[in-house]
Nucleic acid binder design. Structure first.
Length: 197
DNA sequence: CGCCCGATGTGCT
DNA sequence: GCACATCGGGCGT
């Protein structure tokens, strides 16, 4: 059977296109040879040094160096003193852009997720970038991991097809102090659901 | 449900 | 110093 893992070509495109197309794909975490996975429901694009919401806006630093590297790698950063967030690097090598994974719908490995999210209601397991990394045990050790290599324990596979008309784009979350036009770029993509209409 | 706020560490000014 | 691509608890509606 042919691999379901998204090839590097998928990531080597403009970050907005990749962000849109990642909605519906399947994020897979392998732990002790078991699969924990979920369908990606919401993403956000961060596009290069000119985008003042992007971590690369100050140029290349130790923290954001992975964004300047090969597309298809994970960029995992630490924020607010306690949270990890997962991105995938996009575009040509040397161009710093990445897609933040904001929300997934758990599909496999539910018992693993419950263990990582004790006392949390099911709807809150993975509906935020730092919540899903907690749920799937993703941290700084995954920074720069190649998401296209089946030997790794963090991958993105083909998921479900979402018709374009069911993908909503809106402005990005949590960047309120960023100047225009960047603050209002409609680079947040999610599946249309009753609860967010 | 919404708003407010404290937690808590790192990187850049 | 301070800002930060956040979260969860507390309290009011």
């Amino acid at each position: 059977m042919s691999s379901k893992i998204l090839p590097r070509d998928f990531y080597a495109r403009s970050v907005v296109d990749v962000a849109k197309d990642l909605v519906g794909m399947r994020l897979v975490r392998i732990f002790d040879s078991k699969r924990i996975s979920g369908i990606i429901l919401e993403t956000e694009a961060y596009d290069g040094e000119n985008d003042l919401a992007c971590h690369a806006r100050m140029g290349k630093t130790k923290r954001n160096a992975v964004m300047f590297g090969e597309p298809g790698h994970a960029y995992v950063y630490f924020t607010y003193g306690m949270h990890w967030c997962l991105n995938c690097v996009t575009g040509p090598q040397g161009y710093p852009a990445a897609v933040l994974i904001r929300t997934i719908q758990p599909i496999e490995g539910i018992t693993f997720i419950v263990k990582n999210r004790p006392g949390v209601k099911e709807k809150d397991w993975c509906n935020g970038p730092a919540k899903l990394t907690r749920a799937l045990s993703i941290d700084g050790n995954f920074n720069d991991m190649d998401l296209c290599d089946k030997k790794n324990n963090l991958l993105i596979e083909k998921g479900i097809q979402i018709a374009q008309q069911f993908i909503i784009s809106s402005s990005r979350i949590g960047i309120g102090s960023v100047p225009e036009p960047w603050r209002s770029k409609a680079w947040n993509f999610k599946i249309a659901m009753p609860e967010n209409s």
